[in-house]
Simulated assay, not measured.
Amino acid sequence: MNLRFLETFVWVARLKSFRLTADRLFTTQASVSSRIAALEADLGVKLLLRDSRGVSLTPEGSKVLEHAERMLETAKAMKQSLDSDRAKVGRIRLGVMDTVIHTWMSGLVAELSERYPQVEIELVADTALNLREQLQKGFLDLILQTDLLREQSIRSQDLARYPMGWVVAANSVYQRGYDSLAELGRERIVTFSKNSRPHQEVLTLLQAAGAQAPRLNCVNSVAAITRLLRDGFGIGALPPALVATELARGELVLLNGLPSPPSLELVVAWQTGVALVDEVVGVCRQVLERYAREVGEQRIVLA
């Protein structure tokens, strides 16, 4: 329903004059008449009566007026809320792991820039371990990484998890069937930085399956991992979401028939008492929910 038409109707009802309403809204009487006619056609009822004494409401018009005034007040409050957000100033120091950078980070930065155009966004990309240390020392306000933190001045919440998979270059020596994880573990495995949560979980998984001294090559850059896999360097243990384009083009493929590595957890952690940070956490959730709807549960699963 057109809010401009509702506004015009409300002013005609208040002023009881098409001419005065036209003056109030800086338009013409013909435009006022056209808006009222369109609103009546939309609702299927007669709202106003015009005679030699002026303008009056029909019984249906009285009912519509009450609802129209509430709708306009709601729209006004919403606009004031948005204007208040856009007037906010300050700085948010945001730390993100590489996995977020290569999936939904652009959408988050775009949303924050649109919602808080006068707020400075400092973005730091680093390993989860380093991000946690910087948050604990007060160098960052909010981080997106893999672990829940339990400290007095820090809050954290699970956001989602990225399903993991075994990824190889198409038509490489690694694109073949493996009878077990123990056999797979004899190959060169490429995964995230040393002592990160996914590195430790992949290592534990292979060792539990009987792999003797698995060769894990630890890389802290998703771009570097992707390039190494495309060049046939080894078998990647990483979320398919990170290489969705390469998988779609057929440059990389997923190995099937073996247990997948544990999912990569996504956790938001933030300093309490920092201006705007609670709101930014909410924006993170909204943007992530949109991303999850777009890519589906094979790529990311919301907490």
Rank of each mutant, 00 (worst) to 15 (best):
V10T: 06
T8Y: 03
A41D: 15
W166P: 00
L254S: 04
L142F: 05
E40F: 01
V109T: 13
L15M: 11
V10L: 07
A211C: 07
G138Y: 02
S81E: 15
D23F: 12
E69A: 04
P240S: 08
L135A: 02
E151N: 08
I300P: 14
V301I: 15
V64D: 01
L254D: 04
F139W: 10
L3Y: 13
S17W: 01
A169C: 12
S17K: 06
L131K: 05
R230W: 00
Q145P: 03
M97G: 11
L25D: 12
T27Q: 06
N2K: 15
D51G: 02
V12Y: 09
S33K: 12
V168S: 10
E122A: 11
S221I: 01
P261R: 00
S193L: 15
R227N: 14
V295Y: 07
L229S: 14
E40K: 02
E69S: 03
V253L: 12
A241S: 04
T74L: 15
H102S: 00
R230D: 14
M71A: 14
K63W: 02
R197F: 10
L131E: 11
R176N: 08
K194W: 05
Y116L: 15
G257E: 06
G138E: 03
P59F: 02
V280C: 05
K79M: 11
L135T: 03
N171P: 12
V277I: 06
K88R: 15
A244T: 06
K194C: 09
A110H: 08
M1Y: 13
S196H: 10
S81F: 05
D126R: 13
L20W: 10
G210Y: 05
P261K: 00
V124W: 00
L288S: 07
S31G: 10
S81Y: 07
H199M: 09
Q118T: 11
V253A: 12
T272V: 03
W104Q: 10
D98P: 07
L65S: 07
F192W: 02
L112E: 03
A224D: 11
P198Q: 03
A87K: 09
A224N: 09
A37G: 07
Q207T: 07
L203V: 05
G185Y: 02
R50T: 01
V119H: 04
E187W: 02
